[in-house]
Amino acid sequence: MLLDGETFRVFAAVLAVLTVASLTGFILSRKASGGPAHATIENLNARIKSWWVMVGALAAAFAFGKTGLIVLFALCSFMALREFLTIAPTHRGDHGALFAAFFAVLPIQYYLIGIEWYGLFSIFIPVYAFLLLPALSILRGDTENFMERISETQWGLMTCVFCLSHVPALVTLDIPGYSGRQILLVAFLIIVVQGSDVLQYMWGKLYGAHKIAPNVSPSKTVEGLVGGAVSATLLGAALYGITPFTSLQAAGMAGVIVLMGFVGGLVMSAIKRDRGVKDWGEIIQGHGGMLDRMDSLVFSAPVFFHLIRYWFTV
């Protein structure tokens, strides 16, 4: 299976941007050897290098269509949940619940998306996992910090599995006049979310002066947010050709995605702060953990999914 024409053109454009980024990074590192900006440029280059790997993984998944995306995002969920629960102070008594979270709830959620059972995948974790997992935890009789433990496990499942699974779920949406092209909605979402992160980072590094939330995320600035949000919204509008939206609708969708992504970044940073860690993990060089890269996507994917489902499906 190869990428078809439209998907291929999207990836070709992304690869062109990455090539320009890599060349720029290379020139910057030649110019600034040893200077104070050196560490920032080193990190920038590590980030760009990791982008090549991430885009490669996405291209491979896209080539296998819905199944490819489900497998890829199930793996991402696994790694994200592992990062989340690593810093959540569960007890020995939660062993069974944790095991069920990883090896029952996670695969079932993605299986339900695979068979396109919307009625169940949209409530499976919020209702059934929510009600049953605490029962597994209490079987061992340990009540110390019980509410904290069950809440954290549920929060991990909601963010890392439930929310994230809405990315491949986009492919299941039945949109008149758009059948067979839904996979491009995934491309649209990821390009806007990650584009917004990159653009906010760039605007912030170039013009950032006023911090928005110094206690939560010291690198976020007003200039970065406004510049990044506006340019990412324009980017979304420009991509309307691969969506079922008009250019105005595409801009609106991108605006919502960017806003939710910003909220996601802040909330997930606050959790890291609470636990006293800087990054969720080290799996993606230069970026940190899986959740450091996915936090915006986690918050924007379900909202994007439901906006389309409400207004664009039959």
Binding site: T86, H95, F99
Partner: peptide, 18 residues
């Protein structure tokens, strides 16, 4: 760090934590 939570004493099956 953390292996005590991955495979606590008395458990047979490990859960994945970093």
């Amino acid at each position: 760090d953390n292996i005590g939570r991955v495979l606590p004493k008395g458990e047979v099956i490990p859960v994945p934590l970093l």
